[in-house]
Design a protein around this nucleic acid. Structure first.
Lengths: 347, 347
DNA sequence: TTGTATGCGTTATCAG
DNA sequence: CTGATAACGCATACAA
């Protein structure tokens, strides 16, 4: 049984590769089991040996090998997150919040940001499962069936972030329809009848679709109309908002108010309006769904719907932590808030 | 030797926990070694058995256990990235580019975003090393000594992103001083003498410091002065730019031009100028370092320095891939580009 | 081309 | 409280 003397021989080669439990054990003159416990269950160990072990570990610059630990414990303290389009969007803020809450409990985030290519998501998820993520955070509820079945097969907890209400207990989000209703109620109260909309592509994005839907439904209730020639779906971004607004201006449609799906779009559009000599809010009223709380600072004050971006990230994190701990967690209600800065009715 | 019959007994319990190599092997009627090779070295296996193995794997929904693989192979195909402040900054774009580049080669990103707390970085790095990252991407060159020594001790390749020129072969970035020189040369040519600056906190951020330095050095060369009462260092953000500009306006300093450290700050400041009735560029010229290419759209055209954000992310990824492949990689030169839209001299 | 056996570094079980 | 030892699941050197 050559095995019995390997630990010491390994210890001798301590600088050849990273120090292992065996190295620390040899240096401290204890067994590997003791070292393991000293590190993760100090209360089971006498103070004297614990100190001795710690000193040895420090001296060797010991860092636990997560792969070995994961193999033995069947968990990695790692959580996967997959979100598209990291660029000019609100996902970074959401992810930041998610990461922060998970980090509190020692979890680390494995991130994947496929630029729009949804068909790659099963592969991405597979890569995460291979890495042994303990849980996964996904964006929205329209996941490829392959994704959900893989998660089920591997009994991996997950949360759907930015999901519509009623998506089940593994989802956290807010009510896009309610948000749309707030905006419309506001515009309706001002007397607007015909409005335009610039938002994300509803065929690519569940969120964009719901946002548009909510608006449309509310408009119908208020007997208001969305002017077809003043509707543009595009990528999120400042430049896109600028271009879209120019396009709409060129069409000379008789809308008296514009709604924007996100503050980047709104900011770009406001620039276009300004360069076009359109006074906001005199000649046109504008409202925007607000991810980053910045378009609102633009000089023609906007009516803004503040979305609970960070809140979603944090709630998603707590939800996952609860699942992993076998506890129940009821996500707090996510509120949208209508912020009216200065508005007028139709010219 | 009970070992010899465990594979089949494991296979019987196939649905109890995730399928393993042994399960696949049992189902395909081959040995575990063969399955392993069929998956990762198909060329060493006869087509017939390869197909049989693959079918078995598919049927069981087999996903390789990365922990076990990592333990055996000593690599995880995972790369750590640590960047502060994910919110309103240019890091998301950089990370997105990094991730995309690494994903091409099957690498996944382990992300950590400590909100500003640099003192936590050694702990963060430790967490990443524990997870067996093959390499690490860091922001800038002023890393805590503990970080660099840990990396060295573990022989973990790393890259410093957004590093000043001359930071060594493990760094990629651009020349902030040169960028500052371009702005100043432009303003100087217009006849400006006294200018103000709103930027990031140079005591917290190497990048902010270099940006300010570059500006100061160039100004000195042109016999121009930075007006002390028109200098504010703050957090990056739209709101911060707004506030800072209001503050400076309140001080009634005689500057004829303002420079902003980032486009968020610039955008916020422009809003403040606008609300203050200051015509840009007539009453004041403005220039900005531009991370996201959006402030430039704001109605008073800015002079802008486009920074190679995504380029840094991509180059960092390629550098790491090269290191991991034992190849040499010379990062391409990173260019900053001065974009002049409309400018005037001092009023 | 395929099977066998061993090591990878921890944790956990079971004695002492 | 501590030590020995068996998993954990895969890759790979060695044999066949």
């Amino acid at each position: 049984m050559p095995n019995s003397l390997r630990p010491s021989s390994r210890a001798a080669a301590s600088s050849a590769r990273s120090a292992s439990l065996a190295d620390v054990a040899a240096l401290a003159g204890v067994s590997t089991g003791t070292v393991s416990r000293a590190m993760s269950k100090p209360e089971m160990i006498s103070e004297a040996t614990r100190v001795r072990v710690m000193e040895a570990a420090d001296r060797l610059g010991y860092v636990v090998n997560g792969a070995a630990r994961a193999l033995a414990m069947r968990r990695t303290k790692t959580i996967g997150a997959v979100v598209p389009r990291f660029g000019s969007s609100s996902f970074p803020a959401m992810i930041q919040a998610l990461e922060a809450t998970l980090a509190e409990q020692g979890y680390t985030l494995l991130l994947s940001a496929p630029e729009g290519r949804r068909e790659k998501e099963p592969d991405i998820l597979r890569a995460m499962l291979e890495r042994g993520v303990d849980a996964v955070a996904l964006l929205g509820t329209d996941q490829p069936p392959a994704v959900l079945s893989m998660l089920a097969a591997h009994r991996t907890p997950y949360v759907q972030m930015w999901a519509p209400p009623g998506s089940g207990s593994d989802a956290v989000g807010f009510d896009e329809h309610a948000a749309g209703a707030q905006v419309v109620a506001h515009l309706a109260a001002l007397g607007h009848k015909r409005i335009g909309f610039v938002g994300g592509r509803s065929k690519d994005s569940e969120r964009a679709r719901h946002r548009f839907e909510g608006l449309a439904l509310a408009l119908a209730r208020h007997d208001m109309a969305l002017d077809e020639r003043a509707i543009i779906e595009t990528e999120y971004g400042f430049a896109e908002g600028f271009t879209a607004m120019q396009e709409i201006l060129g069409r000379r449609t008789p809308v008296t108010a514009m709604v924007f799906g996100t503050d980047y779009l709104a900011a770009g559009a406001l620039a276009a309006l300004d360069q076009g000599g359109i006074a906001v809010p005199q000649a046109l009223s504008v409202a925007s769904f607000n991810d980053n709380d910045f378009a609102a600072y633009l000089h023609p004050p906007l009516t803004t719907v503040r979305l609970p971006i960070r809140e979603i990230g944090e709630a998603a994190g707590r939800l996952l932590l609860a699942r992993l701990g076998g506890e129940h967690f009821e996500p707090p209600p996510m509120h949208v808030e209508l912020i009216v800065r200065r508005s007028t009715g139709p010219a």
